[in-house]
Computed example of a mutant assay.
Amino acid sequence: MSTSRGRELKPVRNLHLQLADSLRDRLRDGEWRAGDRLPTEAQLSTEYGVSRSTVRGALQLLENQGRTRTRHGLGTFVAAFGGEIKTSLQELQSMSDIIRSHGFEPQMQYHRASVRTASEEEIDRLHLAPGAEVFATERAVLADGEMVAFSYDTIQTSLLGDDFDPDAVSGSLFDLLRINGVIPTTAIAELHAVVDPTIGWGERAPDGLYLLLDQIHYTDSGVGTLASKTYFAEGRFQFSVRRVR
């Protein structure tokens, strides 16, 4: 589907998610500033050639992420942001994409990255055969140079190809999976508040509070691809959940 801005939304992904991505790009590019009113549902529907229900779904995602505020009878307005990064638990995105969508520059600092035999816990979580190998990483996630999370991740190496080189990995693990033709479409996640001085490395508060997002990512066919335990520093990320009755 083409738009008047020369963009194309591909049918392989839900249209409201693609539309939300496009609107986030326009917000990041400064097309609308804090306090500005976005075009109406009818205007966006015409511009992108999609239904108003698709527009409504995209705008709801932006509001869930704290990017916009809807004032009934007045329209949808760009929210004023502080330094925090906001995201919705309903939407599956890489941390790099989330950080970038807020206008910050993401960076992954790899503390450790190696191929090793899967532990019993990893075998159970990813439904692997005994003796299977995984690519295991420990990363610090940064936004504009500021640490926002520590992440401990494992990917079954059978998904990464015969010529996989763990030393060559430097960016998003979602991108690593994508270039190998593996697209996680679903994640099962648990949230826990954690205080643990052994989390992370380098300079950090010994009694720092973290929000642990413990999740396993799956493909459409139900293959477990990536198991991750990501500890978000308190106050750096804000998660939202849309609740309906």
Rank of each mutant, 00 (worst) to 15 (best):
R204I: 09
I188M: 07
L9Y: 01
L128H: 02
L92S: 04
E84P: 03
E47C: 07
V241W: 00
Q65Y: 11
R37I: 10
Y231T: 05
I188C: 00
R69G: 02
G222P: 02
T76Y: 02
V244P: 01
D214P: 11
P184R: 04
T219C: 11
E91M: 07
G57M: 10
R28C: 13
T70H: 12
K229D: 13
E121I: 12
R28A: 14
G222A: 06
E120P: 06
Q43D: 12
Y110H: 12
T137P: 02
D29R: 13
A80W: 03
A118I: 14
D214C: 10
L213P: 04
I123P: 05
R112G: 04
T46W: 00
L15W: 06
V223F: 05
A143E: 05
L191D: 01
L89V: 10
P106I: 08
Q43L: 07
E138N: 09
F164E: 00
V50Y: 00
Y48G: 08
I179R: 15
S53A: 12
Y152H: 06
F237Y: 08
V115A: 10
R178P: 03
S53C: 05
S88K: 03
H72W: 09
A80E: 15
L212C: 12
S88A: 15
E120R: 15
E105D: 14
L209R: 07
A129P: 00
M147N: 01
Y210A: 09
E146G: 03
R112F: 04
S88T: 10
H217A: 12
R125F: 02
T3I: 05
A140K: 11
R7W: 03
E63R: 00
H217N: 13
D29P: 02
V134C: 09
S45L: 10
T157H: 04
S170A: 13
A227I: 11
V244W: 00
V195M: 00
Q60R: 10
